[in-house]
Computed example of a mutant assay.
Amino acid sequence: MSKQYLTIHSVDQAHPTEIFSLAPTPNGIISASGSSSLQVHSTTEPTFPLVQTIKNAHKLGCHHVCTAKGSKGTTAASVGFGGEIKVWTNTNSEWSLSFEISPSKEKGTGDVWAVALSEDQKYLAATTSDGRIHVWDLAAKEKVQSYETGASSSGGNGETSGGSFAMAVDLSRDGKFTASGHENGSVYVFNNEAGKMVYSLSGLTKPVRSVAFSPGCKRLAAAGMAGIIAIYDMQHGEHVSNLTASTTRPAWITSIDWNDTGEYLLSGSQDGKVKVWDVARGVCVATHSESEGGLWAVKWLPKSERALAPGMGKGEMFCAAGANKSLTFYREATGI
């Protein structure tokens, strides 16, 4: 059984360069690109108008921005191509800079790449180019956990060699677990309370571009250049299924996101297609050819209890963005 989603609006040329990342809030969506500014669009009005431009957010452009799934949407974090992390706070519907974590100058440390927030907005996880994963306590503004994924060096000095580029990260909604995806296809899960790795997961042999915990943390999804979405059971760390398109050469998957019920996964890929997957059945139930250019980010929007406009249903909505520099919004074609 398929599901129908309709394109309800497109914000053309939302950025002057391609869009790399999206971060939804209860009433808006933040987008980041190769330009220095972050853009904030309303998701409670039919035309999805621009409500704020955060100018000079990142001098060299921004490759990741995040908010916490299921949160109040008052905290966001972004990472620039200069290696800086910025934490933003929403007060009276305006985003402003709370504080900045400067690029590390320590010898042997990699550049920061992906970021994720816990649902309570208290913890921030970030990956590095040398395979490390760091967790910060935002209230204390200090690093509380650091995980190594590199092998021990043979020099006998107790140091570790660099691990594989950590390209993706997610925090479970309760903040207990951190998952990372790496350039060599590795997927790791860490217990933040115990401060140690609990699972090293198999199933992917090519770079992992996105990892995502299900809302109840019963499943972890991972996807990337292998063109499949691997699903793992978090109780035992088992690889339970793959979601894959019926083609001999599936496109690279750049972004995945669970819906609020954990029934469906959204994916965006380099062939410009957005797909909705029924996880229990293991099948794709909707496909949209978004653009000829690749997609870098796809996100479900928080479900609204009201229609945006007369005749528009209250079903689930999602947003896709990428190389065409536009934001495209979709809604489920059911419900009034």
Rank of each mutant, 00 (worst) to 15 (best):
110 G>P: 02
183 E>H: 10
120 D>V: 02
197 M>W: 07
80 G>M: 03
46 P>D: 03
334 T>C: 08
290 E>W: 09
166 A>P: 08
321 A>H: 00
66 C>D: 05
133 I>S: 11
16 P>G: 15
100 E>N: 12
127 T>R: 08
147 Y>G: 05
332 E>A: 09
314 K>N: 14
13 Q>L: 13
258 W>A: 08
327 L>E: 00
215 P>C: 05
168 A>D: 03
63 H>D: 06
39 Q>G: 09
140 A>D: 13
10 S>F: 06
220 L>M: 05
99 F>H: 09
230 A>K: 07
229 I>Y: 02
236 H>R: 13
256 I>E: 04
35 S>P: 08
239 H>A: 07
272 G>V: 01
107 K>G: 08
195 G>W: 01
155 G>M: 13
83 G>S: 07
116 A>T: 00
82 G>S: 11
101 I>H: 07
138 L>K: 06
191 N>M: 08
195 G>I: 01
93 S>Q: 15
176 K>R: 15
58 H>W: 03
187 V>Q: 02
206 K>T: 12
267 S>F: 00
237 G>A: 04
96 S>L: 06
209 R>H: 12
100 E>Q: 15
59 K>H: 14
265 L>Y: 04
138 L>R: 07
281 R>G: 13
190 F>G: 02
85 I>S: 04
184 N>V: 08
159 E>Q: 15
6 L>K: 12
159 E>Y: 11
126 A>T: 11
55 K>A: 12
186 S>D: 15
55 K>C: 07
52 Q>I: 04
143 K>F: 06
228 I>P: 05
204 L>H: 10
70 G>F: 03
231 I>M: 12
236 H>S: 12
84 E>W: 09
149 T>R: 03
125 A>S: 06
19 I>A: 03
307 A>F: 07
72 K>I: 12
301 L>M: 05
309 A>Q: 14
158 G>P: 04
232 Y>C: 02
317 M>A: 12
135 V>D: 04
302 P>F: 05
1 M>C: 12
273 K>H: 10
34 G>F: 11
215 P>R: 02
161 S>F: 12
63 H>N: 11
336 I>K: 13
160 T>D: 10
19 I>T: 02
116 A>P: 01
157 N>Q: 13
176 K>W: 09
143 K>H: 06
57 A>H: 03
104 S>K: 02
193 E>G: 10
179 A>P: 01
46 P>Q: 02
193 E>H: 11
63 H>M: 09
102 S>F: 14
5 Y>H: 09
280 A>W: 08
152 S>G: 11
17 T>Q: 14
271 D>C: 01
118 S>F: 00
274 V>T: 09
277 W>C: 01
253 I>S: 00
120 D>P: 05
253 I>E: 01
202 S>Y: 09
89 T>I: 15
282 G>W: 03
310 P>F: 05
78 S>P: 01
71 S>G: 10
225 M>R: 13
139 A>L: 14
226 A>N: 15
50 L>W: 00
222 A>Q: 00
275 K>G: 03
329 F>G: 00
